[in-house]
Amino acid sequence: MKEATGLLAREKGRAFVLAGGTDLLVRLRTGFIEPDLIVDIKRITATRSIDVRSNGFRIGAAVTGAELNEHAKLTKAWPGVVEAANLIGSKQVQGRCTMTGNLCNASPAADSVPALMAAAAKVVIVGPKGKRTIPVEQVPVAPGKTSLKKGEIIESILLPKRPPRSGDAYLRFIPRTEMDIAVVGAAVSVTLDAKGMCTDARVALGAVAPTVVLVPEAAKALIGTKMDKAALDALAAACSAACRPIDDKRGTSEFRIKVAGVLARRAAQIARKRAGGK
């Protein structure tokens, strides 16, 4: 890892990190980027494993979508995160793509990022000046731009330990049933008390603003409620209100605003069910 960050820091030209390569190679092939250096981090041991720790999970940067899906404990604790990562591309892409790569592309439509934000995930960054850990929401700063500095690599993603009666879910809207980029994405993570009252919630939306956004107002709409119709309506309204979308080839602004609320509501219902809510 040290060698990799050193290589990246020393390279004077255009340097890129290769994990799964499912986006990098497309950009390479279409002449969109012309790198002077590509660093493949897949053979660095620290990037290859999923570790279960007392305070949660540590997911190496080069762990693929397919590997996440095959990890029973992770899938049980964070089904929404895993299902979001599994929505990135086809089976072919799943064998290669990584959540870290998805995050570092800094696309507002990245599928795994809303789920990671809703999960309060953090990333461990290694660079020439050592290690630092920051929340996921601080990584993307603009479309295609991250807060990472020259020579820095995300080594792993940290997911917190789940309190009892917690559940998360991610839903996205695409015109087909597979193979599309999200037109809207919504992730919801909730924790309930024994009476089914929501005690904690985080809500994040994708493809409705220049970056994936955390929506605290939407979370507030759920906390302290039994996530009944009124709370869900308030959640949907808060999500729609938080959207700052554009019209593009994938959908209209109007459509995104409306569907963000619909998906957040549906995701919240799934998350609640997963948390054991009735």
């Binding site: 049933t177 193979m179 599309d180």
Partner: peptide
């Protein structure tokens, strides 16, 4: 949309 990502021909699961 000059590519199969955004020129959306039907996939098997559709």
């Amino acid at each position: 949309n000059a590519g199969f990502l955004d020129y959306r021909i039907p996939v098997c699961s559709d």
